[in-house]
Design a protein around this nucleic acid. Sequence first.
DNA 1: CTACGTGCAAATGATTTGCAAAGAT
DNA 2: ATCTTTGCAAATCATTTGCACGTAG
Lengths: 178, 178
Amino acid sequence: MAEHGVAEKLPPDGRSMTPSLPNVPIAQSPVDKFREFLDIKKLKCTEERLRIVRYIFEAHQHFDVDQLLESMREKKIPASRPTVYRTLNLLVDAGLLRRLTFGETTAYEHAYGYPRHEHLFCERCGGVIEFVSEELDRLLQSISREHRFRPISRKLVVQGVCEKCSKPTADRRKLDLI
Amino acid sequence: MAEHGVAEKLPPDGRSMTPSLPNVPIAQSPVDKFREFLDIKKLKCTEERLRIVRYIFEAHQHFDVDQLLESMREKKIPASRPTVYRTLNLLVDAGLLRRLTFGETTAYEHAYGYPRHEHLFCERCGGVIEFVSEELDRLLQSISREHRFRPISRKLVVQGVCEKCSKPTADRRKLDLI
DNA sequence: CTACGTGCAAATGATTTGCAAAGAT
DNA sequence: ATCTTTGCAAATCATTTGCACGTAG
C-alpha cells in the first residue's frame, strides 16, 4: 500500500557518503566562503552555524538531515534540528551545498570544492554513482541555445540498477512481481 | 524569509498546460490502458477513477493536484482530494503519468501517448519548454554502460531563464539583488 | 454477497515558525 | 545596546490513512 517505486532511505552502508570524484582546487575554505556570504547578507557568524558548516565539510558527501543530526549527536557536536535546517538553507543559498532528491529522500552534497557532476541512482540499494561529462555539458548548452533559454543549473538523475544489484545473489530479496 | 530560489507555484497563464511535442501513436486509449492495469492488479474499475483518468487525458499536460481539483470542480466533475491522490498514484504506477518536480511544486504529465522528453524550466515565470534529444539518449546510454549501470528512467530538468523572461521589460519585477 | 473504494476527518512526517532567552557586533 | 540567532514547542503543508458507508464484480 505504500511502494510507488524507488528506495525510501539512503542506505546506511556508507556508500552514499563516499565522494568518487577528485576535489577541485579552491581559493577559500568552505568556512571562509560561508563567512563571506554571511557578511554580505548581514547575517551573524555564530558558533552554531560554524560548527555545522565545519562538520559538513569535514567529510560528508551525501547526507540527509537525519543522518547529519545523528552523526553530529554521536560526535557530541551540539546542534538543534531547526538550526540545522536553517543553516542548510543558508548553505544552499550560499552555493556551498546542493540539494538533491533521490527517490523520496532529500539529500545534500558539497557544491563547493567538488566538481559539477551528475548522478546514477540505484533504485535497489540507494547507492549513487557520480560522473562528469563535458559532452553532456556541450549538448545541453546547445539545446538551450536552440530554445533561446539561458541555462543556470540542472538536475539530472538517471535511475536504474547498479552492477552489484543486477547480479543475482543467493540472498537477494524477491523482486516485487509487477 | 522564504525564498531559497525558484518559483513557488506553476503559473496560471496556461503555459505549462500546453503540450509542445507531437503526440505519439498509441494502440489503446489511456482509459483502456488503465482498465487493463486495474484488471491485472485486481483493483476495481470505479466511476470515480474513470472520471479522473478521462479528465486528465482529455487535455491537461502539466498540472498539480490543486489545479486538477480546482478545474474538475469548475466543470462540476466530482472527485475528492484523497481519491485524486490515490488515483494519481495508481496512474504513476501504471505508467500513464510521470511525476515531476519543478522548483517546489509536484506536477504531473502524460507519460502515455506522449513522447519521452526533457524539460527546460524557467525559474522566473515557471514556464516549461519540452525537448527531445536522441543524442542525449545515446550519451546517457553510453555513460551508463561505462559504469555497468542499467538505466531505467531519468529525471532531467535544466533550470534557467526563458527568452521572454530574459528580455528586460518596463514592468519587470525588480530582481533580488544577491 | 463480499471485498474493495469512497469521502470525511484525523493522522502523519518533513520542514518552518513564534517566542523568550542567549549571543554577536 | 541592539538586533539576530537559538532551541523549544507548536504550526504548517502536502499527502496519507482509519473508519463507516457505498458499490463493483
